[in-house]
Design a binder for these strands. Structure first.
Lengths: 213, 213
DNA sequence: GTCGACTTTGACCGTTCGGTCATAAAGCAC
DNA sequence: GTGCTTTATGACCGAACGGTCAAAGTCGAC
């Protein structure tokens, strides 16, 4: 029989094929969503027939969840690297840069995630409420400590994190809008965004609130 | 014959029915996307049969585009109200508040828009590159003038606008994630978000950059 | 060459999709 | 009531969907 998700060590060729399928599926799922995507479209993009695709994956659902699992693993990494030993403002700036790089280099992954959450996150709710929440709470506590120590302004740590997610992923998820507004293709948009965001957060989180106004 | 989008003045009953359909369609399209939504689902949610729905709308496409047209009209309004005569920082804060209110009161509309843009904005690309871009450019010029006059910090006006869109719509589009991270239902999340964002932008855009650091 | 495991495919199945149509109610003017 | 328009529906259509299956092709081990 075939490889019913049990073969201990997949062949080099098996790896290559499943990789091609996941690559194609990322294209399709990230723009069409789960329901909007079709196995035919994925198979064609991967360069094989639909039954052949189903030889490597049991179902459409399995392709999708495999993609999500991978994604979530990598998704938390930038926040995880927020270092308690570092200088607070520099740490936050570095976090913004990492997230912005991910939006630039992995926009399809960002859109896949956005699609899933937009639909109410039916397949990843447990992950969000479990590991993600735990990580966010941990880092929020760290930020709160920085606040209380007067090393950054006193702000709500959770909403600070949300805002960084929002402004960085925006450049991947709303790429079509950004392009339309800035003109067909502004190659400097990520650089300009980084400069703006670093300024915004540096000023907005500075430990000494300004006197005037 | 029926009302082939020609009847000059629709009956009260016609208005009510089309309204019920659009209301139901907003529910379904905003969570499932265009391809994921089905006419059966919309018809059932609206409380009528599929053929009856198609008596009021010519096609699935027409329901969707009608919804989008409405949305886009209202979508630009908050930015349009950014007033050149006002005090710059107060104007930007007011803009943030208006956008946050829209995310709170019209989350489905925000998600519908997000879905469309995620898919590459195939149906609203012209609107984005036309009226939206024109409005953004106009307001960006205003903000740039404020910058040059030293009334706010020198920042990229386009990316400032993008960031406000991102952080406000995030609370509608990623509601499932926000809820999961904050705990089942945090009724104060919009208040807390507003406080944080006002602080962030007030500090980040303050005309006098801080001396230290 | 031949054997067996792995891989690929065309044909097919049941379901669901968007949409049509003939027909039947329902409402209303007279 | 009669007649006309508006509204509603069950039955149906062709296409596309996710998925199955038997059969054929491919490949290395011996």
């Amino acid at each position: 029989m075939a490889r019913a998700a049990s073969s201990a060590r997949p062949t080099r060729n098996q790896r290559a094929k499943t990789e091609a399928i996941l690559e194609a599926a990322l294209d399709v799922f990230s723009t069409q969503g789960f329901r909007g995507a079709t196995l035919d479209a994925i198979a064609e993009a991967a360069g094989l027939s639909k039954p052949n695709l189903l030889y490597y994956f049991a179902s459409k659902e399995e392709v999708y969840t495999r993609l999500l699992d991978r994604l979530l693993e990598a998704w938390l990494e930038p926040l995880r690297r927020l270092d308690a030993a570092g200088e607070p403002l520099a740490e936050i700036r570095a976090y913004i840069r990492r997230k912005l790089e991910m939006a630039r280099d992995y926009p399809r992954e960002s859109r896949l995630f956005a699609n899933e959450v937009l639909q109410g996150a039916p397949r990843i709710r447990e992950t969000l409420a479990g590991p993600l929440r735990a990580l966010v709470d941990e880092k929020a506590a760290l930020i709160r400590d920085w606040s209380r120590a007067g090393r950054i302004a006193r702000v709500d740590p959770h909403h600070l994190i949300f805002s960084i997610w929002a402004v960085t992923q925006h450049y991947a998820d709303f790429d079509a809008q950004v392009r339309a507004v800035l003109g067909r293709d502004d190659p400097a948009r990520f650089q300009d965004a980084e400069r703006f965001l670093v300024h915004l957060y540096t000023g907005g989180l500075a430990p000494t609130p300004l006197a005037g106004d």
